[in-house]
Each structure stands twice: as C-alpha cells, then as structure tokens.
Design a protein around this nucleic acid. Structure first.
Lengths: 110, 110
DNA sequence: TTGATTCATTGCAATATTACGATAGACTAT
DNA sequence: ATAGTCTATCGTAATATTGCAATGAATCAA
C-alpha cells in the first residue's frame, strides 16, 4: 500500500527512520556535503555543483529544512543555506544510539 | 520521474544513501532492534513482535539481507536471522565518516 | 502419505518519492 | 518602470516503496 503504519512503532523507531530518510538519497547526501565544504552557500551553487534541475534541488533543500538539518537565510536575491549544527548533532546522537546497541557478548547463532 | 540519477554522484555518496535507506523505514528499524535484543531470531518472532503481515516482514528481511546487514541460516523449518556484525560495522564507519565532516571552526553565516 | 508449520515468492493495489518544465514571487540594477 | 537574476511553488509523469492475500516450497510429526 505504500502507507507506513507509523502508529505501531515507537517514537524512537520513527525518529530514526525520519532522520535516515534525509540521507536515503544521494542528492541530499551531496547537498549536505557541499554545505559542509563551503562557508556560505547559495542554492545556485548547488544546482551547478550537483547537476540536477533547480526545482529538484529546491525540493531537496525544503525537505532538509523541514527536518531541521539545514537553515536558510534570505540574503538579497539569493538564499544562504547552511547546516543547522544543533539539529545535526541531535540527529547524530539519535542515530548513533541506534547504531551502538549492545552487541558485545552475544552468542552468534549464525 | 522517481528515477535516481546515481551516475552523477560519487561512490561514497551512493553508499551513504544505500545504507541510510535501510533505516529509512520504522519496520526495518524495529526488526534490527529486535535482532539486537534476541540471541536467536526467527521470522515468526518478528511477525508477532512487530505486527505486520508475514510477507511484509519477509520482504524487509530480504532487503536487509541483500544489503548484508543481517544473515539468515536455515534451521529445520524455521530461519535464524541475526545481525552481520562485520557489515554492520562497515556501515557504521561509512555513515559516521559522513556525519563527522569537518565542521569545527566554520563561520556560521546564518 | 497427510497435515501442520515456517518462510519465500508472486501479483496486485495504494501511497511515496524523484525529477523537471512552466510559472510566480522577490529583489537588483539600469 | 523594465529587464535580469535567483529561488519557490505548481502540476505532472515516472519510478520506487510498502503492504497484504494467495500461493508455493521445504521440513517435520504422526
């Protein structure tokens, strides 16, 4: 059906999934990497850098912004996008807690 | 179009995206958490635990298996699934390298 | 063999995601 | 005002993902 049954999962499980979705596409990975590399970022940069159409980039930026991973300030006619470190670190914490579950002394059955 | 243009991205960017996709759905997050919790895991367990239909769970398990994050051994009539630690650690390394890009002394323009 | 159990596969329906052309809105420069 | 630049939004087309009923394949128990 394509309809995720979010209500049957825990809040943490949904949070991991929502954050992971941000990186689940190479366009967004590339956008974030570029934002890390640069000091000041404009959408136009990204269109040239990444090689997708401007509306496509704009759409990906919107998703990242809604997740809180980036923020954008209007600067004259262009928009300055950059990483929102506070939320970025929160995301890292949530995902790393998931990655680092207790796996130490487990009888490996397989 | 829904067709990801993987060819315009770097290998690393695609790798991050592919791994992230594994966690981009709460079902798979829940499955992995359950596999961590248990010592010996069977698909039937997961159907009861998670509350989705058996074919749905089976499909998610297949994806995780194809990615190499879990492995499954046939054990009589049931199948023993568990985390593949080697690939799990590789995934952690790939994603953490992405998460921990140089962000230290950046002039925050926003 | 027959029936029960367990998991995989197939086929389908519905929603989600990705991409882009066209267009609109906001600002700048002339 | 007018033209040019930059970004957002709308509408649309195509692919991807999710979920499940039905079915199949393999094993075990009697």
């Amino acid at each position: 059906m394509g309809l995720t049954k979010t209500e049957i999962f825990s809040e943490q499980q949904n949070e991991v999934a929502v954050f992971a979705k941000a990186f689940a596409h190479p366009s967004r990975v590339a956008i974030l990497q570029h934002l890390f590399k640069m000091d000041t970022c404009v959408c136009g940069d990204l269109v040239i850098e990444i090689g997708l159409a401007q509306p496509t980039i704009s759409q990906h930026l919107k998703e990242l912004k809604q997740l809180g991973l980036i923020k954008g300030n209007i600067e004259g006619t262009s928009v300055c996008y950059c990483i929102d470190l506070e939320n970025w670190n929160k995301m890292k914490k949530v995902l790393n807690e998931f990655f680092d579950q207790d796996i130490a002394e487990k009888g490996n059955c397989c």
